[in-house]
Write a protein that binds this DNA or RNA. Sequence first.
DNA 1: CAGAATCCCTCGTGATACTG
DNA 2: CAGTATCACGAGGGATTCTG
Lengths: 104, 104
Amino acid sequence: MDRHDIPLCPISRTAVFLGSKWTAQIMREMLRHKRRRFQDLQDALVGIAPNTLSHRLKLLEQSAILEREFYENNPPRAEYVLTEKGAAMGKILAAMHEWGEKYE
Amino acid sequence: MDRHDIPLCPISRTAVFLGSKWTAQIMREMLRHKRRRFQDLQDALVGIAPNTLSHRLKLLEQSAILEREFYENNPPRAEYVLTEKGAAMGKILAAMHEWGEKYE
DNA sequence: CAGAATCCCTCGTGATACTG
DNA sequence: CAGTATCACGAGGGATTCTG
């Protein structure tokens, strides 16, 4: 067995998850608005590729940080809603913001 | 110009930096002890390769989160010391810990 | 509009061996 | 002890195209 099999501690898993390039910005946007459409997020996150956004949203949904609501109209509509677990991440983002303000 | 050139916002840079696999654990160790030797860290971070630890420490030093003190004895001794900027990251780690406790 | 499919490429990490 | 030197690999991200 090699080192890939050793699981990270909870705090590191949180850090690694949030540290995936776009995740913090997605969360900032969701914390501000509570509910956002795919297109809104893509507009807000200047430079993100749609497949990347889609992938991160899926992971956020799997972690129960967001919930996806899909309406099969024409055109279709998808909305992502912040859960309580997701909203609780606000403190982490706030701490990062405060630190960044002071030291960067 | 492609999307690689677009700089991340400060909060995302912080997240990405901390999200590098071992960085949160290094910081947890440094926040606990304020001052640690290379070997101490390698022992505490079970599974880390020395080149990886060395690399992360260099980046932490470049960001002025740690300072390196090197003594050319035989055997040599290196100590890494938490700066004020580094100590201020404690709030971020604490927020992650609190969130992890409650939701994971 | 909200993605899925594909291909490509970089970067962080890891294994291992070596040095002053 | 405290690293450096290589080599290699896999995952995440990006560019682009396509669809219901």
